[in-house]
Design a protein around this nucleic acid. Sequence first.
DNA 1: ACAAATCTACCAACTGGTAGGTAGATTTAG
DNA 2: CTAAATCTACCTACCAGTTGGTAGATTTGT
Lengths: 220, 220
Amino acid sequence: MVSDTRNRLLQEAEVLIRTRGYAAFSYADLSERVRVRKASVHYYFPTKEDLIVVLVQEYIERFVTKLDDITRQHAQARDRLLAYAQLFLDGFEKGLLPLCGALSAERAALPEIMHPTITHFFQIHLDWLVGVLEAGVSAGTLHANVVPARTAMLLLSTLEGGSFVGWALQQKAPVLAAFEAALSTIEAAPPKRVRRKSAVPAKPAATRRRKGSPTRARRR
Amino acid sequence: MVSDTRNRLLQEAEVLIRTRGYAAFSYADLSERVRVRKASVHYYFPTKEDLIVVLVQEYIERFVTKLDDITRQHAQARDRLLAYAQLFLDGFEKGLLPLCGALSAERAALPEIMHPTITHFFQIHLDWLVGVLEAGVSAGTLHANVVPARTAMLLLSTLEGGSFVGWALQQKAPVLAAFEAALSTIEAAPPKRVRRKSAVPAKPAATRRRKGSPTRARRR
DNA sequence: ACAAATCTACCAACTGGTAGGTAGATTTAG
DNA sequence: CTAAATCTACCTACCAGTTGGTAGATTTGT
């Protein structure tokens, strides 16, 4: 078994990038956190550019694997999308911004070779979402009038944006709130919706026809 | 007639922050762009912290004015929201990320006194949106079942997120695409074609409604 | 023994920041 | 009115600390 220094460096660097940003962390920070000397960081990643290139490269590989897992483990579009959203929430609850968003924010301060990588990263998100949405429409679990390309953009944007808004407000509500609102607009009428515990409705709020009207999706 | 150096410094600093980020620009960069010596930058803004505090402070003031203008110039919720979205698009077309989003991304690398300011900045967005949405619901131009707080979050998130996605992909489509998709789900059905999509939120269903009776009655 | 991993000890360039000077406009005092 | 004093808006020349990065010695594991 060899040293795990390289992995710990990548791990800590990822945390730093996803909290402070690429420009705002130094090899000195990194060496301090991993408790090796600065020169040892250069041993694994000769330049800072090397570091971020490898970091993002490996991150994307892991991310693609996660997307594959989701596709394999969930059959319904809704479940896949919720699992996808959970990826963002997982990061958020660890106090981390989405890597792709963090990189996008700093785009102009990043080494230029990163630019196509960032584009590619977002495209992976969008392509996967489009695939899920198309499958959902075909299967009839999503509204027939959902336009996959546009909806993929909406879902990705709400999660990215929600992460930044939640990060600024220091509360996690925005991350999923926006996404769920978006999701609810694209679902075909469900046979029955899982209800969450509502806030003790003293009066029967039943006078309001709940969830009824959207059921009549037209023309399926 | 006095020197406009101070304003030019603020202006260039804003561009730098909204493209590269706070950590990634230096007084040397700024002095070069404005073509004064570094010491002159310190003359107006003794420390970098002073600079960003003043910059964001003044930005927020201008931003609030813009929101007021929109409220005054547009009566319909839809028009107000489109004008609001246009603010993001205007920045985007100048190659600038939303300031609030850029600051959020770097939150941990910013002087701590900025943290409440950033929160406040986002709250201004949300409060204004909630006001517009409530008015729209009361006036009947928005779906009666729109939950202003949640929808405000959705709209803000899509614009922030759309800006970052568009920035990464270097195309403006995402900025408005996501927002328009969100907007279309909250508009009241036009008199003729009833094409109601579900906008029913999953969570809070209970505490709605009697807020509507006073406001909603006043339909003029 | 030897290669991988880590170290000490540097470096030039850059960072935010300071000290002190100066030309010219503006205010004040005789 | 005018001369002294003050102020504004810059400047040159520094500074200590940090940045990413390098050379080369030493330790470690097999």
